[in-house]
């Protein structure tokens, strides 16, 4: 595993902290876009042979994760006049602390998983698990629907990182195209409806159904 891939993964882990630590939704979306671009170029440093499939994968990932979806979210933010504060349930310091703890645990846990000889030096498994956990944190500790969607995107990025280890089988594409496109597409529609019904994207108002 070339060291460049490891450097990209470390950058990815840093963006996790940035996304969880920023108080501004617009910056969080930028962080997600940056993650998308990082994941987009990552396959270049994993596969030595530049096939058509590789180029297509790189372009598609970078375009979807790095541009289209962040663009949609930014557009939603602008059109719906959402205030830009993140408004978390849990403060930023505890969230970042949890994120750090999760990253450390991911590194420890990944040590127990046997790796193929070619992947031995890769940070792929811990980076995947840590990103998954950061996404989950973002999803559960945020009040607004749009911040929850950014959390979900980070979570999906974690799955994608691991998918790259299985580049040979065509399963990476399933993760990117179907899950991402469709999942976000539908969520976008729902977001749209929430806007129409409540003229706000605060899921706090979605609290009539409870025990």
């Amino acid at each position: 595993m070339p060291p460049i891939a490891d450097s990209i993964l470390i950058l990815l882990l840093l963006t996790n902290f940035f996304i969880l630590g920023t108080a501004n939704i617009r910056s969080a979306i930028r962080g997600v876009a940056l993650q998308g671009l990082l994941l987009g170029v990552l396959p270049f440093f994993v596969e030595s042979q530049a096939t058509v499939r590789l180029v297509l994968l790189v372009i598609a990932t970078a375009a979807i994760k790095g541009a289209v979806i962040p663009g949609l979210l930014t557009k939603a933010l602008r059109d719906v006049h959402i205030r830009h504060e993140v408004e978390p349930y849990l403060g930023f310091v505890p969230t970042l602390f949890l994120c750090a703890a999760g990253t450390a645990l991911a590194l420890l846990f990944a040590d127990h998983l046997p790796l193929a000889a070619a992947d031995r030096t890769g940070l792929f498994v811990p980076a995947s698990l840590a990103t998954l956990f950061s996404g989950f944190l973002g999803l559960t500790t945020r009040r607004k629907a749009i911040s929850q969607v950014t959390g979900y995107l980070v979570l999906e990025n974690g799955v994608y990182v691991f998918g790259l280890l299985l580049y040979q089988s065509m399963i990476v594409e399933v993760g990117v195209l179907l899950d991402l496109l469709v999942g976000i597409f539908v969520m976008g529609i729902v977001l749209n409806h929430i806007q129409r019904e409540f003229s706000s994207l605060d899921t706090e108002r979605l609290s009539r159904l409870r025990e």
């Binding site: 969520m187 729902v190 409806h193 929430i194 979605l206 609290s207 159904l209």
Partner: peptide, 10 residues
Amino acid sequence: SLEATWKYLM
């Protein structure tokens, strides 16, 4: 039903 759908999807 919107609230229920949002929770279900998320």
